[in-house]
Design a binder for these strands. Sequence first.
DNA 1: TAGATTGTTAATCGATTAACAATC
DNA 2: TAGATTGTTAATCGATTAACAATC
Lengths: 235, 235
Amino acid sequence: MKQKEFMLRLMRYKRVLMQLRIMGLERVFSSNLGDALGVSAALVRRDLSYIDMQGNRRGGYNIDTMLDCINKALGSSKTQKTIVVGCGNLGKALLNNERFSQEDINITAGFDITPQEESINGIPLYTMENLENYINENEIKVAITTIPVTAAPEIKDRLVNAGILGILNFAPIELKGQGNVVIQNVNIGLEIENLFFKVNSINTETNRPCGSSGPCSSAGPCTSEGPCPDEEIYN
Amino acid sequence: MKQKEFMLRLMRYKRVLMQLRIMGLERVFSSNLGDALGVSAALVRRDLSYIDMQGNRRGGYNIDTMLDCINKALGSSKTQKTIVVGCGNLGKALLNNERFSQEDINITAGFDITPQEESINGIPLYTMENLENYINENEIKVAITTIPVTAAPEIKDRLVNAGILGILNFAPIELKGQGNVVIQNVNIGLEIENLFFKVNSINTETNRPCGSSGPCSSAGPCTSEGPCPDEEIYN
DNA sequence: TAGATTGTTAATCGATTAACAATC
DNA sequence: TAGATTGTTAATCGATTAACAATC
């Protein structure tokens, strides 16, 4: 069971459930959740079955119980502590983000080679020398890195050696985790490129062969002028 | 052909190719690229075939030609213009990011209800009233939104009505595109939650049923104390 | 009971890979 | 030519869905 989208769906179920609870509902059927997410009711039931959420064959699922169960599965029943390493523009933006505390994510400290302030948004900033000590003393298991590419591999090793098990890396280099260390890379530049690609795919005519300098072969898929209506590369 | 990972692979091929070119290589085989990305050579050839990159059955692929071809497919042969809507912490971080210009991404303006500066990093800031005019006059097709959730749906409509075809949305609400408008949502809070989930999946014992209050059924998959070694939910 | 929904199995769908003919 | 790699087809793999027995 190696499902890329599985836990993403769990989070979406959670959002829907919270909304439904606000609206005063107490029970929900698999088909409700399926409709909300655009997937089949069967998949919802399979997901719920996987996290050991048991429903009632007549009355569906209890919303509160399901929320508990999803939170338990997501490990977010307790507030999650994390630190920000690198307090440049993006690092500051993360430290200033009020929303995280609403989502039970608690940024407890920021680290930088030369911190320009003592604290941001009430969160203390420390120099890089204090990194290992802080991680050990506060039992930090997850870190967010917003550091230059050149520093990324070294900082990664320091974090992992200090006991960090998960890194959310914003440096535009693809770091790889080993053993039980999970590294998740977010490359904003790549996201933008990705978006331009999708926009262009929809609105530009198909490209011609690159290896050949001649005209498009008559056997090629695209002889019309506009974009190929049948072809969907984007998702 | 609706391949989620397809264009992401193209970008990765590109990175590898640029590195190889720096090292002085001129040709590359599908197996080289497959090894670098951890996919099969067959998939590489299929991808290249799809973007009409033609190789030589004896000598593999020409690196320069392939780079041209990938750039063409990605639509990044020319510099891509975009704007940032919402100049809070995250917006400022994006405006200050020097790396985008290296990647042929050109942020030409920032917009905010009340801009606190005339420009950031040489990029002019305007009030929201100028949004539609600017988009029209400069033929902007892609926008980045770093705005509050409450404003997101309205701003989205304004952007789309002004002719925007692609939005990279950082507001923590899932906006949906319609017709030929592509919206890509980046939810940093969700990414962090996702990471905590993966870390916990690896390092925590399996959860017990939520719907039932009794002990774990003997038929359940997990009777041992530690984490289930066979089960992989994370990817 | 009759009706409705869960939990789960078999069928479907799509993406990746193995294999091989074509050919440089 | 003989060897090696491309381009492409058939086989495989995994995730989602349809269908249905179990059961509240």
